[in-house]
Design a protein around this nucleic acid. Structure first.
Length: 154
DNA sequence: CAGTGTTCAGGAT
DNA sequence: ATCCTGAACACTG
């Protein structure tokens, strides 16, 4: 199967995706872009529909490295909810800081929802802009609420 | 070696 | 109550 690349709009930004079937190789954000095709679940997600993206996979979750185990744990955080760096670290058996590094180097945001990982006393970081993280979290809050869910947190 | 999208305990103010 | 240190950790330039 061929490797495909495309982009779709997300608020003020564009989401650029490189994928091969259900396997997503890379996701990145930028201000520039031209609308083209992306995997259907990502298009629905960006349109603000409730979509957990679990149908897609990422190469970053493969293997036994600490990084891969962190990424697998992050994927278990449900749509519309958040977890702290420390909580993920405790489950994997490493330090919170290592989780931060894994998030910073996440090759496939959205598919591995690093935006749902927040600091204990604040939102935590996000590259290239924390504004994207805020946008994603409020997008998920809205969609979850529309589905009749009650989210006291966030 | 220093530096990361952190957190906690311990101590001083 | 808030503010500083240092340590723990996996990985990169």
């Amino acid at each position: 199967m061929e490797i495909t690349t495309g982009a779709c709009r997300l608020g003020l930004w564009f989401v650029h995706v490189s994928w091969q079937g259900d396997l997503v190789l890379r996701v990145r954000f930028s201000r520039q872009g031209v609308e083209s095709s992306v995997p259907a679940p990502i298009r629905r997600y960006c349109a603000g529909q409730r979509e957990d993206l679990l149908a897609l996979t990422s190469t970053a979750t493969e293997g036994d490295s600490v990084m891969a185990r962190i990424y697998r744990e992050v994927r278990r955080v449900p749509y519309g909810e958040t977890a702290t760096y420390g909580a993920i670290a405790a489950k994997v058996g490493t330090a919170p800081r290592v989780v931060g590094m894994a998030m910073a180097r996440n090759p496939t945001p959205l598919v591995i929802p690093c935006h749902r990982i927040v600091a204990k006393g604040g939102i935590g970081g996000f590259s290239p802009e924390v504004g994207i993280k805020e946008h994603l979290l409020s997008l998920e809050r809205r969609a979850a609420r529309k589905n009749g869910e009650f989210n006291p947190d966030l």
